[in-house]
């Protein structure tokens, strides 16, 4: 009891451990698991990442004006939903060209708000996939 009594007294003169969060940003480690990033020029459209993704946050959907790439025979476009992603990096491990076509950054995904239409747009894409 006495130790914590004096500890509390000593703590009065120490700087607090907590930080003013939005004003003082939290330092992110280099290996922090953040959003998945993609380079469509390097992609070979093997669709391995789509199969590996546990929550189904990566979709290759046929579109009218697909990105120009000679490997892209079916006219697919990469779609990624950071709000569905669990950042497990299964897709990066499945990718035949990791770090070039698909890699994991250490950036935090932004918070989804109503204007993003997270659900509606994504459900449409899922419909297209079927």
């Amino acid at each position: 009891m006495l130790t914590s009594f004096f500890k509390a007294l000593a703590n009065l003169f120490k700087t607090p451990k907590t930080i003013d969060y939005p004003l003082t940003p939290i330092a992110k480690d280099e290996k922090y698991r953040g959003v998945i990033e993609y380079n469509q020029d390097e992609c070979i459209y093997c669709l391995k990442c789509e199969k590996a993704c546990p929550p189904g946050a990566i979709l290759f959907v046929p579109v009218d004006n697909p990105p120009i790439n000679e490997k892209n025979k079916k006219g697919l476009k990469y779609h990624y939903n950071p709000h569905l992603c669990i950042y497990c990096s299964e897709c990066v491990r499945a990718c035949p060209k990791p770090q070039e076509a698909l890699w994991q950054s250490n950036k935090k995904g932004h918070i989804g708000i109503k204007d993003d239409k997270i659900n509606d747009d994504w459900f449409e894409l899922e419909e297209l996939k079927k």
Binding site: A8, K17, D29, K31, Y32, Y87
Partner: peptide, 29 residues
């Protein structure tokens, strides 16, 4: 409450170690 805050504050060290190893604090995957 003081003990609560003390242990919770020290627990951050472990959370940081976990983040260093796995890249995340809670869901390690």
């Amino acid at each position: 409450e003081a003990m609560f805050m003390r242990i919770m504050g020290d627990r951050e060290d472990i959370m940081e170690i976990q983040e260093l190893i796995t890249g995340n604090r809670v869901q390690f995957d």
